[in-house]
Design a protein around this nucleic acid. Sequence first.
DNA 1: TTCTACTTACGAACGGCGTTCGTGTCAAGT
DNA 2: ACTTGACACGAACGCCGTTCGTAAGTAGAA
Lengths: 241, 241
Amino acid sequence: MPAAAIPAPPWRAPKKAPAARQPLSAEAVLSTALRLVDRDGLDALSMRRVAQELGTGAASLYAYFANKDELLEQLLDRVVGEIPLPRADVPDWKAEVKRTCFASRNVFCSHRDLVRVARANIPTGLNSLRYTEALLALLRGAGIPDRICAWAMDQMSMVIIADAVEQSIHEELGRRTEAEAEPYLNQVRDYLAALPADEFPNLVALAPTMIEGSGDERFQFALDLMIDGLATYARPAGGAA
Amino acid sequence: MPAAAIPAPPWRAPKKAPAARQPLSAEAVLSTALRLVDRDGLDALSMRRVAQELGTGAASLYAYFANKDELLEQLLDRVVGEIPLPRADVPDWKAEVKRTCFASRNVFCSHRDLVRVARANIPTGLNSLRYTEALLALLRGAGIPDRICAWAMDQMSMVIIADAVEQSIHEELGRRTEAEAEPYLNQVRDYLAALPADEFPNLVALAPTMIEGSGDERFQFALDLMIDGLATYARPAGGAA
DNA sequence: TTCTACTTACGAACGGCGTTCGTGTCAAGT
DNA sequence: ACTTGACACGAACGCCGTTCGTAAGTAGAA
């Protein structure tokens, strides 16, 4: 190349963009991925799309995450970090546990169907560990035997996640509010009511009942069942009032 | 068929296969798909592979199923059909419910991780409807109020499925028996025990406890919590003894 | 029997996916 | 100025679900 460095061939469009891209980092990838999930849902999250949003190629992400599963795992832990931790020094431990369960469900549901990647596994992320630690402190403080605490933690996670998954699926299908869900619920009721009454007497009879109650009421019911049951293991003084 | 039907012209390799291919049907597709899931797991189930197993191309399957989701839905209903239905005329309804829940979990777990496709949705398949009908009959027979029956059905399905999913994931990872799972569980215990004790005192203290109890024991615990709680809604005479 | 009409079957192709490989790029160290 | 090494990433591989246009098979009409 004789003519020195050609300054900048202006007749040829600048090959890329003015860039100004932050130099890429695990943090930036996670933020972008979470933004994508919040905007388009979990199924729309692909390595290619995240990279594209960052102005790079999919291959670049593998410098920070071994694979997509690892990215999703860290994404979920980030969301778990949004859950306000329970306090162990409250007078009414049952209310505090229920409050935390509701908060967990709400946080999960506020990120579309991201919760679908969750499994009630042993927690490994930092935020999941903190969450588990805080809930364990609360339960042990109530005088619940250790083994029951361990099992109850598992079970609560499972119920929260399962409920959030179901909730998020409804929302993905456009049943966000009660008003939006009503046509769908009526369809379900009519479908059940139209079954042959001789083979399905109970389903037919309960058709109107089956669609009763909001998601919140049903979750409340499940929580009460579980946590009131748990309370029978607690130190007698543990119950409020 | 003696000498009349030419036994098998061995000099010319059978151009395709010995054929004997049943002429393709929804039933044949479902059987093949289920066989594939049982052999290789849910992730290995693709339209192409099912078709290949049937000696045809993927496109042919779309004559019987609108898409893969529909195939999976019917596959799951087929498996639900393997669950023995509860009887409504038993003296101890609680035991019957628990027995059925265990049976459900066992059936799901006997088909690798197929249960992962399940959602605790309103049942639509024939077998799911029969299952729901039978359980509703049992609960209503116990004198549980209708609304509670409806909610409890939902909740039981969710717990069974969530537990089966977790169980199946463990099994997919090679932790089939207690002996096989022990190395993994010990790792978990050591990981938890090695956490900084000042930030995670309860997790550290409970490290040995967290891995206690087989999957069956934990499921039993969850079921007792839920169903004993349910029993408080039942007609007083409902309880056994 | 022959021809047409219609159903069913399916090879090939489309666009997308997760992941890998080998090269390109550029700043720091020499 | 040259070397080195870490980082970045375009291109390609082998999958996937799904669609489309055509081929094969069958039944009825002529």
